[in-house]
Amino acid sequence: MNRRNFIRTTATISIAALPLGKLNAQENKEKKEFVGVLVDTTRCLGCRLCEVACSEEHGNYVPDVKNDHALEKIRDTSEKQWTVVNRFETKNGEVFVKRQCMHCWQPACTAACLTNAMFKTKEGPITWDGDKCMGCRYCMVSCPFDIPKFEYNKWNPKIQKCNMCYERLQEGKKPACVQACPKDALLFGIKRELMEVARHRVYSYPDKYVHKIYGEHEVGGTGWLYLSAVPFEQIGFRTDLGTTPYPEYTKEFLFSVPLVLFGVPALLFGLNLLTDRKNELNKNERWENE
């Protein structure tokens, strides 16, 4: 075997041994596209069956939708109800808007959580794990939509928020609210496909919808998308949140932490050595002078 051949064979063997092909295959298998829900507020009638279905699914407070007149004021989701429907009076008449966790692509709550109790699953829903959470409520401080809710009146409080019915998704079912919607105002699917549907609706009826899909870019993109006939500010959405994913705001600080930990101790030690040397020199000089 001459040298050239030897090199050639070893090179081929080592390249073949590299698990490159395998890695690629794994990556494709692991890659699951995030799911989401498209809410078409022009279709919602305000029947609030989604609220009932949600609470029944998760064992929360089930509202009496016929008699409680809850639509009369604007409500927020609470530790008892993961989703609520609000009524807004606009120039196009009544508009009903469902509110729940937006399931951001780059969620602030999971970046805030120091125990990984808030967890972005690879399917897209953000879930909460009571065995890990220590109740610091930093997720509530960070969430741009004010979604995580805390049980202040329990000794053993939980963080309550929509988990997009993660258990149902595992079984291949749709979220309970989507299942319960009688008017197809909620559409469950992969976000890429939902965006196509949403754009199609906007382009097909350019006069019916405002030309914006809320959640396409907001805070880096969210799992829940909204279509509307009136500007989103008028139906209770914050439009000043920007398109930067929220974890980006702390990224630079967190990156600088190891830099400081590498550099500053060395710098301080160096300073200390310098001052020592100065003292020594002073002593020596004095010695000579005497």
């Binding site: 125990t115 890990k132 959470c133 220590m134 805390f150």
Partner: peptide, 12 residues
Amino acid sequence: LDLGRPWHIINP
């Protein structure tokens, strides 16, 4: 005192 579930403080 402020933690809701202080028995998990050891988790991180």
